[in-house]
């Protein structure tokens, strides 16, 4: 399921992808266009299955995308993989992520991709904003906001949460289960000596 919001600030754009259960790959549909200026009408694009890969320094598209969109080369680029490097071509495109989070004039590298993947969204795009992945309640959710909106520090959030959590609440009855989750009665656990 895809949802999108636009946080405060006129230029922020965001989207969220939610999976039912855990996903081992972060994938969404994106649309890739031959490069065009935002002021001009878009040419025919191609919907692609994109993998979000923090292990890729740059974004890439498959040879099929290059051929179908007739993308001319704007240069040669090396691709470094385990075992060496290979030379391939780079191409200029506009990329529309979910919720119309647009990236105009992005150079992408042509390379063969596996598993029905048409494109890789690499750190050149992910690094333009905030990218989070969570697995709360066993469901994978990833979210992206561009440009960067705020720092997300789970250590700080956890410390804040623990600081303000009422460990010794006066509303807890002495024979009630302890709110710390131990399974013991409050009077024999965190409330020992207090009630």
């Amino acid at each position: 399921m895809t949802t999108g919001t636009r946080p405060s600030g006129p230029r922020h754009q965001a989207f969220t992808i939610r999976y039912n259960g855990k996903s081992r790959r972060l994938i969404s549909e994106v649309e890739i266009f031959p490069a065009f200026l935002p002021t001009s009408s878009p040419p025919q694009g191609r919907k692609c299955k994109a993998l979000y890969d923090t292990g890729a320094t740059h974004s890439a598209v498959s040879p099929q995308v290059v051929a179908e969109l007739q993308l001319a080369s704007i240069g040669t680029r090396n691709v470094g993989v385990a075992g060496g490097t290979l030379a391939t071509t780079s191409h200029m495109v506009n990329i529309a992520l979910p919720n119309l989070v647009m990236f105009p004039m992005m150079p992408v590298t042509k390379m063969v991709l596996l598993g029905g993947i048409d494109a890789i969204i690499g750190m050149d795009i992910l690094g333009l904003g905030d990218f989070t992945v969570t697995h709360h309640n066993g469901n994978t959710t990833f979210s992206f906001c561009c440009p960067s909106w705020k720092e997300i520090d789970l250590v700080a959030e956890l410390q804040d949460n623990q600081r303000f959590a009422p460990i010794h609440s006066s509303k807890v009855g002495r024979n009630s289960p302890c709110p710390c989750g131990s399974g013991k009665k409050y009077k024999k656990c965190c409330g020992k000596g207090l009630v």
């Binding site: 890969d53 890729a56 320094t57 680029r77 490097t85 590298t109």
Partner: peptide, 11 residues
Amino acid sequence: YTLMLYSPSYS
């Protein structure tokens, strides 16, 4: 000028 792919599967 180099796209680095750190996932071993790309090899």
